[in-house]
Amino acid sequence: MAIASVAHTGPAAPPPAPAGRSRSLTPYLLLLPGIAWLTIFFVVPIVTLFGTSLQVPAEGGETGVFVQAFRFANYVDAVTEYWAQFSRSFVYAGIATVLALAIGYPLAYMIAFKAGKLRNLLLVLVVAPFFASFILRTIAWRQILADEGFVVSSLKWLHVIPQTATVTASAVAVVAGITYNFLPFMTLPLYASLERIDPRLLEAGSDLYGNGFTVFRKVTFPLSLPGVVAGTLLTFIPAAGDYVNAALLGRQPGTAMIGNVVESRFFRIVDYPTAASLSFVLMAAILVLVFLYIRKAGTEELV
């Protein structure tokens, strides 16, 4: 249809006339279920959350009772109190994203181009960890890397790590845990965009005297950028808000991330306004970071 007509009329053809009125409504009708869903499960909760973030404790100080106010200072208090945990979250998430990219890219590349018959099996292996709850897997790591466990004892015996070192209960363990847990989210989009690359383009690169590295740098990598952008976003956004890894693999007080603070404020201290303002600030911060990143990386590739 449209493609055929363009092909016939040649490069200078004007774009086809806009479609009729009923047709222009279609996208909005199609959007309706999505919008309804977002309204009920995103917009309404977020408005409520925003309302909660401005509340103040009720007179009498009963636990968990707050009255609606417009105390925007809640935000100032939350950020001044917890800026360290905020920065730690973004640093941990950033390092984990870079590590996941460094591990996930070669993995996806190998599966897409070199795996041959094993491709499907390897893909299943990438997804397989999802069959078990990620909390259980994180707890499993704690047992595997326990001080007296086989791995750490062996490393100590080989003098790879100092005799007094602990692997779990450290910042390294938290970052490693996040990297591990989000690796499939990085690998799968990378694989999807690498796998789509037309091999003839790579051949063309070689034909034009590009060596392996040049072809990778000038053809493969640029073509895989949608995967890189999607993968980094899918890793970074949940990683910044993660609290399970810090709770299970971290060590108080030095590894608390902002998710842990929200958990503590909400459940332990029963201070809903601060928990809500922290969640809001986290959302806003992630939104700004993602916006800047997409501006830099370009949205067109995010197909």
Partner: peptide, 17 residues
């Protein structure tokens, strides 16, 4: 309740939360 909240908060801060 007020003292409970205050102590819990102090404890949680020492834990880095």
């Amino acid at each position: 309740p007020e003292t409970e909240t205050k102590y819990t908060e102090q404890f949680q801060k020492v834990l880095g939360n």
